[in-house]
Design a protein around this nucleic acid. Structure first.
Lengths: 253, 253
DNA sequence: TAGTGGTCTAGACCACTGA
DNA sequence: CAGTGGTCTAGACCACTAG
């Protein structure tokens, strides 16, 4: 019984591989540099390509690598911080919020959104599609659901559809006084449509930010924004210039 | 040239498979139910197990499935919302913040954290380990870095280490007045240590929440919390009971 | 011990990119 | 066109869990 059970659990090859590669990236590669191709790397480490790929997938998930079909694998730059908090989202479409309106449709929302939107389940809402670009790269794609009741004066707008109508909807939204907003982030995978907007393959990991804009006690708009998880760090709660007034009962009891 | 190029791009099998399974989960399965095993499923759909697994991995990433070695694949419950915003994190260790102090060490932080912490790079800091449980399930594991300067009166505490000392550090931290906090969320993968705390395999996807607590213009503490991405929806900015005082120049220009 | 998911292999072909 | 990463196969063995 001399074996002390240490290392009796051999770590998986891909895990060890990931560690080795990670250290190599830190010391021997610089941002943007391209790695040897997968077949060569696999041979060099004496593993099957599938195993090598498992390690690369992890590193890509962590934002350390970027892989593009037909091109190669490159060392990714550090993730960029994008603001998703109170500041940036004050009202969608506010004075430069880094979003770019794409188009607008009038449809009934998917049933999964019927609850947060308080509309009747068969009621059509404005669906504004926006995209967000940062440092020349697409980082997010958003669907903004706006119940007709939130933008009552939209009738007079002539733009029937497209980006112009999208901007009109956003402009009308500004007239409401924003009470507060509720946010949530969760992990998802890019659908067929978003993947194209984000310049990624379908199934790529994304951070889904859901925001409920509340005005006059009702849900005035609901935003579902999907961010590229590989390139983005979502920042929030950076109350840089905003004064926060704590209720006096903070340290109560 | 009669081919209109429609569907000339066949979608991958695993993608189609994922769609089919996803619909089956909605209609024919209930939460907690266990699926047939991977070999049977693969045979039933006429694909290799690896392909079937690729579809399952995606569904697990989206929080629809839960897989446990030696047990099976079960239908996951909806993700639970856990608060990471101003409310919950007001100060680490505040009046019930759902965290549970585990232990405390005095070490020099990894160099990657030297910048946000303004300490000299060789200076040791208190490292408090905490874990968070929600509905009987571990959801997060945190490392809280507290520079010695933030808790000057700690000398008089007798507890040398362990959970008692961790609580002492947190208690001392409360004495500072919190100016503000900066948060960031990004995708990561569980390290060897966190994976055990979170009851997941190494490499499991996690949401890493980094919080900088700022008091007296300096970084009083730095929290790096890793949440299980499969089971958690991180909520923030839900200013339910907090009054926010907007600067008067909101709708400026 | 039987059955599960996790890892790994050595191939093959496909879709895409850029020269 | 040659070279890249993406998909897929049909096996094998291992680590873990539960009865």
């Amino acid at each position: 019984m001399g074996t002390t059970q240490l290392e009796s659990v051999p770590e998986p090859k891909y895990w060890h591989l990931k560690t080795v590669l990670s250290e190599a990236l830190d010391s021997e590669f610089s941002v943007g540099e391209i790695l040897p191709n997968e077949r060569d790397l696999a041979a060099r480490f004496g593993v099957a390509r599938a195993t090598l790929r498992q390690a690369l997938e992890q590193l890509e998930l962590e934002g350390r690598l970027q892989r593009r079909r037909g091109v190669g694998t490159t060392v990714a730059p550090p993730r960029m911080g994008v603001s998703v908090g109170s500041e940036q989202h004050a009202w969608p479409g506010g004075p430069d919020d880094a979003w770019h309106a794409v188009d607008c449709r009038l449809e009934v929302p998917p049933p999964a959104l019927a609850e947060p939107l308080v509309t009747g389940s068969d009621e059509a809402v404005h669906i504004v599609r926006r995209s967000r670009v940062s440092r020349g790269q697409p980082v997010a794609s958003e669907l903004l659901y706006v119940p007709a009741a939130s933008v009552p004066d939209l009738s007079g707008i002539d733009a029937p559809s497209g980006a112009a109508r999208a901007r009109a909807v956003l402009r009308e939204l500004q007239r409401l006084e924003l009470e507060r907003q509720e946010n949530a982030v969760e992990l998802g995978s890019a659908g067929a449509d978003e993947s194209k907007e984000l310049d990624r393959l379908p199934g790529a990991p994304v951070l889904v930010v859901t925001t409920r804009y509340i005005a006059r006690g009702r849900t005035a708009a609901l935003s579902v924004a999907t961010y590229r998880a590989d390139t983005c760090r979502l920042t929030f709660g950076d109350f840089g210039g905003v004064e926060i007034h704590h209720g006096p009962e903070r340290q109560a009891s």
